[in-house]
Amino acid sequence: MMAIISCTNLHKTYDTGKVKVHALRGLDLSIGKGGMVAVMGPSGCGKTTLLNCLSGLDSVTEGEVYVENMKINDLSDNKKTEHRAMRMGFVFQFYNLLPVLSALENVELPLLVSGVRPKVAREKALKALDLVGLKDWAPHVPAELSGGERQRVTIARALVNNPAIVWADEPTGDLDKKTSNGIMDLMCRLNKENKQTFVIVTHDPGVAARAGRQIRMEDGKIVKDYSNGDDSTD
């Protein structure tokens, strides 16, 4: 299977001035297109840092990162941003929706910022909300939605521009078991139907078990990599 994401000798060091924290210590990783990969490990092992570095949200200290055959760490900030807007979607643990915008406005925002006409953006946003079962909640602001609903809005926002890769950082971390299952069902369905690549950072073994490949990290390194061969979901 062709790799959509790969990195070699990836290092990330945080320099706080007084101490240096080595968050990633020379990682090599390759993720196939259309796969669903779960990254696990204890707190502070570098899971989120890995996701941030691979997605281009954070710069790397050393090493190379390729996403869709583009060396992402060589791109300018603007290029990286454009690439994120067009080809990636993000789901965060605490939803991170803009509180002042409605569900619909939150979802259409990535489209508007990448230059899609407002009318088209609105249609696509409604479709995405429909996809996650929240079309009727479109005019509501995040404060009026439950945790599960907010996370579904986040997923709709992540998928609205039909991205090649969806990055999810603890997508079920703030949800109860039942809602968490619902969210994972939705992500697995989308992964299968749309052949989009999902990289999920999680603490939950149940969530990780739904992914085709599980990577375990400790102290900034990959210590275990369980794969069923094609990285796809169960």
Binding site: T81, R84, L98, V113
Partner: peptide, 16 residues
């Protein structure tokens, strides 16, 4: 700050 992070992650450029 966190919302700026979200906006940047979904495609807002610095100038935006």
């Amino acid at each position: 700050r966190q919302e700026i992070g979200v906006m940047r992650s979904i495609g807002f450029k610095r100038r935006h």
